[in-house]
Every structure is written in structure tokens, then in C-alpha cells.
């Protein structure tokens, strides 16, 4: 019986070069695929991360708008100011209590406030800090000495305005007051809420969205994907709502401006929120 012959001869040079070439190509393809996959992973991760921030912005803003007395937006629609009832009483400890609502009359309607009061039939003048109430305190709501230093909000009153002084106060019921900031338009029958109010401002700072509550900072969202919020406030006769959108530009997007605009538009999420307190007192 003839033993089998072992085939132990080596590769020829051509075979070796061919094998190395093919192997290199396969390795390069694998590396390239890995890099692409890694980039894809990063893109997906960033996209979802920015989407989470989007939702967070919308949710946080909607919650504040929903419980606001009044909302104003800047002309570029990127700064939103919410005036919120001061629901919690600061007892100087870590344990606040909930405030008891106090009632006020606005015309024939009853409204409720927390640590604040409502003054109606107020005359405001565009460009003037002076405001006034007609008649006597027995007849209608008026200002009081306790209002000095307190926040005041109402249609046509800029955010952050306070009462600086009151005057003409027979029996402690004052018919005139001076604000810290001038009214933005004239109104002969304005309704103002005066007292301890919570002022919340949303603004864009670099790549982040900040929320400042009475000056205290909370970062709502941050993303390297260039988040852009836009909120418009719609105030009608008897109701008020905001429409907000938040977009971002995915970092993997490459192309001309038109392409980028489309990419951003494709990430838009939208929210419409009514001010629950805006209709208070109405049927």
C-alpha cells in the first residue's frame, strides 16, 4: 500500500500577494464598517438624546404655562416669561406648606389667588408708571400699603414689574399707585393681580435651555444638536394659549442650507397649552 503524500509545499508569491490583498481589503471593509456603525450609533444616540431634551423642554414649559396667570414671549419667541401663583408658603425651613386661596371679585366674577389679590377697574396708561382705581374702596377693589414692593401682573404690564408706592389712601384704601416699569399700552378697565408671585423665565443660553424661577437657575435641557425653542403667546378676549415648537439639527446631517433646514424641520415637535387660570371666573 502506498502511503499518502503530504501536501506541505508553500504558497507561491503570487498566491501570497493575492491572499494579502484580499485580506487587506476585507480588513479595511470591516474597519470601515465598524467606523460607520460607530458613527451611526453616535448619531442615533445623539438624536434620541436631543429628542429627550426636546420633550423635556416642551413638558416643562407646558406645565408652567398651564398653571400661569399670564405668559409673555419675546419678539424672537425664544424667551418665555410665566407668572405663576405662589402656591407654596416659605416658612423658612425645608418644609413649606400649601397656601390657602383668597377670593377677590373681578366684576361679577369671583377669582381665587394664592398670597396675592386682584384689583380691577384699573386705569393704565401707555408709557406711564402711574395706575389708578376709581371711586372708594367700599365700592371696588383698591390698592393697599401692603402692595408696595409686591409684584404686579396684568395685560399690558411688563414682566417683573412691582408696585413702588401707593397714594390717596383714605381709610387705607388707595386709589393710586406707581409701578416700577411703565405700562405698554393704555387700558381703562384693567385687572391686575398683586402679591407674591412666582416669576419663571425660559431662555436660550448657548446650547442649553435655562429656566429661572425667581432668579434661581435650573437647566432644563442641553444638547450639542443646537436645540431651538420657539413659543408664541396668543391672547384672545377670554382665553390665552401658547404654541411652542422645539427643533434641533442632527449632527450627522451634512449638506446645503436647504437640506439642513429640512433636516431641522423634520425634528419639530409641537405643543399647544391653554392657561387654565386665564379663564378663571368666566363661565
Amino acid at each position: 500500500m502506498k502511503p499518502a503524500r503530504l501536501q506541505n509545499q508553500g504558497f507561491t508569491l503570487i498566491e501570497m500577494m493575492l491572499a494579502v490583498s484580499i485580506g487587506s481589503l476585507m480588513l479595511a471593509a470591516t474597519i470601515a464598517a465598524s467606523i460607520c456603525l460607530q458613527r451611526s450609533f453616535n448619531a442615533v444616540d445623539n438624536y434620541f438624546s436631543s429628542h429627550v431634551q426636546q420633550v423635556r423642554i416642551i413638558d416643562s414649559l407646558s406645565r408652567d404655562v398651564r398653571r400661569s396667570y399670564i405668559v409673555t414671549t419675546s419678539t424672537d419667541l425664544q424667551t418665555v416669561t410665566c407668572i405663576i401663583p405662589n402656591y407654596l408658603v416659605d416658612n423658612g425651613s425645608n418644609q413649606p406648606t400649601r397656601a390657602t386661596p383668597a377670593l377677590s371679585l373681578v366684576g361679577n366674577k369671583v377669582v381665587a389667588n394664592y398670597q396675592a389679590s386682584t384689583v380691577n377697574n384699573v386705569t393704565t396708561t401707555q408709557g406711564s408708571t402711574a395706575i389708578s382705581c376709581p371711586g372708594l374702596g367700599l365700592v371696588s377693589s383698591h390698592f393697599s400699603n401692603a402692595n408696595v414692593g409686591q409684584s404686579v401682573v396684568g395685560t399690558g404690564i411688563p414682566a417683573g414689574t412691582t408696585i413702588q408706592s401707593v397714594s390717596n389712601c383714605p381709610l387705607g384704601s388707595c386709589s393710586q399707585a406707581t409701578m416700577s416699569i411703565a405700562a405698554t399700552f393704555s387700558n381703562g378697565n384693567a385687572t391686575l393681580t398683586i402679591g407674591a408671585l412666582t416669576n419663571v423665565v425660559y431662555s436660550v443660553v448657548n446650547q442649553g435651555i435655562q429656566r429661572r424661577e425667581n432668579g434661581g437657575l435650573t437647566n432644563i435641557a442641553a444638547s450639542a444638536d443646537n436645540l431651538i425653542p420657539a413659543t408664541s403667546d396668543i391672547e384672545l378676549l377670554n382665553t390665552e394659549f401658547t404654541q411652542s415648537t422645539v427643533t434641533f439639527l442632527p449632527r450627522f446631517a451634512r449638506g446645503g442650507q436647504s437640506f439642513l433646514d429640512n433636516e431641522r424641520a423634520g425634528t419639530t415637535i409641537f405643543s399647544l397649552t391653554y392657561l387654565r387660570n386665564r379663564r378663571r371666573g368666566d363661565g
Binding site: V52, D59, R63, N94, P96, E213, G215, G216, T218, N219
Partner: peptide
């Protein structure tokens, strides 16, 4: 939670400027 929030105090206080992490989370 993916929260990136920070605040000064350890607990809730009514003064938001010193409000702690207990109030920084949205959900």
C-alpha cells in the same frame, strides 16, 4: 432619567434659588 440638573441644597425649600435636587427633576 437622563437628567442633567443641579442645584444647591439637598432638600426642597420654597425659595427656588436654594432648592435642592428634589425639585430639579421634571418627572
Amino acid at each position: 432619567l437622563s437628567d442633567q440638573f443641579f442645584a444647591g441644597g439637598p432638600n426642597f425649600v420654597a425659595n427656588s434659588a436654594s432648592r435642592g435636587v428634589g425639585d430639579t427633576l421634571l418627572r
